[in-house]
Amino acid sequence: MPITKQTVAIIGSKSILGVSIAKGLCSENYKLLLFDEDDTFAGQLSDQICAEIEGAEVEVIECQHMACWEADVVVIANPVNDINRLSEKIREVATQKIVAVLLKETDLQQLELVERGFPHSKVVGVIPSDYDKESVQLMTKHTRALRTVKEMVEKAGFKPLLKELKPH
């Protein structure tokens, strides 16, 4: 765990994954930037975390682009129906950053679709298990990114199952 505080942007903080990651990371050495279409929810989550955890650095941010620009790691915690629209907004500021994306299933094509949307980012697919609510599968071609996201989901209370893919 680095000494220098890392910034994590959570896009879709209203989702189960988003809330879990926010609550799991807030007591660790992270600054959290929360974005959700429902900014009231994001505000309530931020207030709750700040009330419960002393010293937590959590902020609601109104602009996805700005959140991702400030972030070291981007977590897209909502299932993304239109990855192209989202990637157009944030791709430029996600270059060479870890982008952890919630996927509906272990589908390489889905992962590749996201990778095409973020061609210069280290994309990690996060797939909740259908059978065990505490497990998530992590799928990626990037070893170091896998380690970072594994650490994050563990802190969020999940059991990560790792699937490292061969790079092209």
Binding site: I3, T4, K5, W69, E70, T95, Q96, K97
Partner: peptide
């Protein structure tokens, strides 16, 4: 070149690096 760089916006008093890292 552009694709190799990480763009990061930082606020006043944030640390880019802390001693020990």
């Amino acid at each position: 070149c552009k694709a190799s760089f990480i763009p990061k916006r930082m606020r006043k008093r944030q640390f880019l690096l802390q001693s020990g890292d």
